[in-house]
Write a protein that binds this DNA or RNA. Structure first.
Lengths: 250, 250
DNA sequence: CGGATTCTTGATTTCTCTCAACAGATGTGG
DNA sequence: CCACATCTGTTGAGAGAAATCAAGAATCCG
């Protein structure tokens, strides 16, 4: 928790953005709309509260966001991470109220778009509408994979899955090189993501390291050294998973 | 399984369907498309397999469907129940492959629509597109509520939540009268829905009954007799929940 | 009727949480 | 620059919640 919205606008100069399988360049009106609503936000800033009436769609340009729900006694469940090119649409059934918290995990560059504007954008750009569908489909696929592990998986399975999911998602962004990647997360984040306590995340990760499945370096630099075994623990085929949860360039 | 597959095959003659907040009558071209693709399916029939390439959108007209994922060792997680007016779109990120199983829990009347046709329908009917959005938003809200409980809730909390969610969803369908409703489910279904074993579902339900929170009659006729306490266990405000997870008529 | 589910309850085991203590890192202000 | 507070990560010991194993009762179905 720190200083707020400070960070002045320097290179808010977005020249292109890939959403789903679609590249939006300077000649796209959609990109101009993104630009008009760009904000740079600091890490840990909450962009939207669950239940908030003034609901907005948030497009990630740079950095990590997370969507979450929290229980009355303060426990948090991360619902999904939103990476560059992802679209967080927190709207619930009434079409007005947010059903999620959205917060910045790292400093991030986002486009915050009022619902009305967003709907107009979708109507005016079939490409954007299509990209939006792809991104939503990818998110749905991720959510159900994760629900399966939350409901039926062991701690090992949940964490193995989380590592593989994030690895696969970072790959097309150029942020995962041969199963080595950096997670800007604490073990608490991983716990909130997998429905475990931070303590148990620690134990389980260390066990993975002891067993030669992953290596870790300073603050969450991860390298998966035995993808085959880790996949087996996660109950997943990595390539099939990648196809289902990340929109691939065509 | 049981009787409720019974529903006689007479009125496959669909004269209107409410999807989200929208009524589609005989004068709607969308309804005609639904009609052209109507199928009656028996209980337990699997309509679509996770991973299946020939992916379709399924609109529920009557009865209960469930979407699910299963792990390699055969454990099942129900992702969501689909009730009349709901739309099951199992498409994953590649836009072609199904990311979910879809099966009939009861005998059901459904409209099975190929993806291409579905997209054409959405393009041609802004009302249908709007209804689709509402239904999807409601589903997203339900999924995140449930993920919170799967990750962070006790068995009591999960089951209490499930009962309240289903109660709230059945209400606008006229199937829940003053918190009394019938669930065409076994305790195993509830276990697969809440990520618990059937044994533990049984214990927990009986505890609720002993404590005067709910009454049960023959095979899953439920009456919530103390909604206040049950809501507290579920960590939910019933009316707010209802607004977030069910599309309300306008 | 007989077989197959489903439900119920008890006894035991297993997994994860909770509590606790400490080390390392980070950051702050004097 | 140091003293100090605050996070984060690590590890151990013990408690608690749900799973597993098991066996019998109730129900459904052909």
């Amino acid at each position: 928790m720190t200083r707020q919205g400070a960070i002045p606008i320097q290179y808010t100069n977005v020249t292109s953005l890939r959403v789903g399988a679609m590249d939006f360049g300077s000649d796209d009106t959609a990109l101009n709309s993104f630009r008009r609503n760009v904000q740079r936000v600091p890490a840990n800033k909450i962009l939207l509260h669950d239940g908030e009436h003034n609901c907005k769609v948030i497009v990630v340009i740079e950095g990590w966001l997370a969507t979450s729900k929290s229980s009355l006694n303060g426990e948090v469940q991360l619902i999904d991470f939103m990476l560059p090119g992802d679209i967080a649409d927190p709207t619930s059934a009434d079409g007005k109220t947010a059903g999620l918290n959205i917060e910045a995990v790292t400093g991030a560059l986002v486009s915050v778009i009022p619902l009305a504007v967003w709907h107009r954008m979708l109507a005016e750009s079939p490409r954007l509408a299509r990209a939006n569908e792809q991104v939503q489909a990818a998110e749905r696929a991720r959510l159900s994979e994760r629900m399966l592990r939350l409901g039926r998986g062991s701690a090992e399975s949940r964490i193995a899955y989380a590592l593989i999911e994030l690895c696969m998602r970072l790959r097309p962004l150029g942020l995962s090189d041969n199963c080595a990647f950096h997670l800007p997360l604490t073990q608490r984040h991983i716990g909130d993501f997998t429905g475990l306590t931070a303590v148990h995340v620690c134990r389980t990760l260390r066990r993975f390291v002891r067993n030669g499945l992953v290596e870790t370096a300073d603050h969450m630099d991860i390298r998966i050294t035995n993808l085959a075994t880790l996949s087996e623990i996660a109950g997943v085929e990595p390539e099939r998973l990648a196809a289902e949860i990340t929109p691939l360039p065509e």
